[in-house]
Design a protein around this nucleic acid. Structure first.
Lengths: 253, 253
DNA sequence: TCAAAAGTGTTTCTCGTACACCCATGT
DNA sequence: ACATGGGTGTACGAGAAACACTTTTGA
């Protein structure tokens, strides 16, 4: 330890040279490696209901079951090329399934799920993300036309999910509940312009309990003072009684 | 899709047989796989200061730098043997470094850190955990005697950490702050018996701001009503004025 | 004219915060 | 006796919750 420190102080170059030499001579050992995938739990609101993006498995492990979209992380083959980041991998998968640009969705890592035997074929460690998709952008998802296409499904305990995807979905649902309470994440589940009743409905859906119209309104209006949200130009939408329209600051489209 | 459903309903056996046949015939493809490691950010309190368990690297990648304890996840070599879980891997690493039994520490997953080039040798995806170690159990950590031994170090921005371990440490620190506010996680950083000033000090250290003695006391006493904590048998400890001793319910040792 | 949902106001209660003060001990 | 820090009391303000009430539409 003393020696290491002395080396660094007295001859900084030598340490760097030693590192470079080590790397040049490095040959990877023969440790068994797991497959690593990314899975995405993508949520959106359709018809005032929370939906998850799922795929029907057409191939044998859990054939016919629903599964989360996902795929292998592309890793390079050595020091020179190490491949894509986890975020890049999940963005790529999401774009393949939905056509959505990464900049259009809120994306956050849930964690790693790596229990042995979660995939009967081989050891697979999956890094799960959850995504929030604005309902005005879901159009690009291909309909149930061809097989293997993703669909927006209502999450339900009765869904038969492949692998440990039920666990991952539950974790995503729980994380969502936490985040809704502490951040203004609900923005990612709303169209650019929305009314107070609409955002209230998103909150109550995510949290799972009724929100008092009056109290919710007061809290929401507080967000205007904080500059998080602003009144959208005079227009209104009708339902029973016309409601004022708002939007999150910075959004125009 | 229709066919899959029909198969399941009409001939449940056949689906199972098909799955089994697929598995028996399955041969893993030739996707490049990353190395997967677990790293642990272990915290404890020593001399009223927060400490992290770190190891001095003796070998070239970042030789002489501090690093988080960690190691490869042992994965099996196929369907039959898929190796250990992530939790088992990190528990094993922690026990190797500290001698602590998994049941003695609080352990929670932080997330996966998998940016390319975070390890110059090869693509490594690391699943990080953080651990809380009760200060009355830290004795088992080997002293700074032999090289390669872990040490309890005060976390500081000046520490030179290997790889992206500074990022992981920061994430752990942040997560800890969140959890302290919302759960009674501080229990895992306290000896079996403690005084109110002691637990108050843990809170203020973790949160990073002074806690009002009177207000903290009131909140703490609320935890007694909730059955989280209880008065320890009459004994007291002296410092300036003797303080009452408490313990978390269910702990005896 | 009635039901339904937007929007407003009011009251109450709880909690966090700030801060003044008393009490027991070591030096 | 006095400084230190444990332990107690109190007063204020912000925010949550409950709920009654007015307004504006469609049917």
């Amino acid at each position: 330890m003393k020696q290491a420190r002395a080396t660094k102080v007295a001859e900084p170059h030598q340490a760097a040279l030693e590192e470079a030499a080590f790397l040049a001579a490095y040959r990877p050992g023969d440790f068994a490696r797991p497959s690593v995938t990314v899975d995405v739990v993508a949520f959106t609101m359709i018809d005032a209901l929370l939906r998850v993006l799922l795929v029907r498995r057409a191939q044998p492990p859990f054939k016919g079951y629903w599964a989360l979209p996902g795929g292998f992380v592309r890793v390079g083959d050595g020091q020179r090329e190490q491949g894509e980041s986890l975020e890049a991998a999940v963005s790529r998968e999401l774009e393949e399934e939905t056509g959505l640009r990464p900049s259009d969705v809120y994306l956050e890592q849930l964690g790693a799920f790596g229990a042995p035997y979660r995939d009967p074929r081989m050891r697979v460690i999956s890094v799960a993300f959850y995504a929030l998709v604005r309902p005005d952008l879901v159009a690009r998802v291909r309909g149930g036309g061809d097989a293997n296409a993703a669909e927006w499904v209502e999450p339900s305990a009765k869904l038969r999910l492949a692998f440990d995807h039920a666990t991952i979905l539950a974790a995503a649902r729980e994380r969502l509940r936490e985040r809704v309470r502490s951040t203004s994440i609900a923005a990612s589940l709303l169209p650019p312009a929305f009314t107070i009743p609409e955002i209230r409905h998103v909150y109550s859906t995510l949290i799972g309990e009724r929100q008092d119209p009056g109290n919710f309104r007061r809290r929401f209006l507080g967000m205007i003072d904080e500059g998080i949200v602003e009144r959208a130009p005079g227009k209104r939408i009708t339902m029973s009684k016309p409601a004022a329209v708002y939007r999150f600051c910075g959004r125009r489209s």
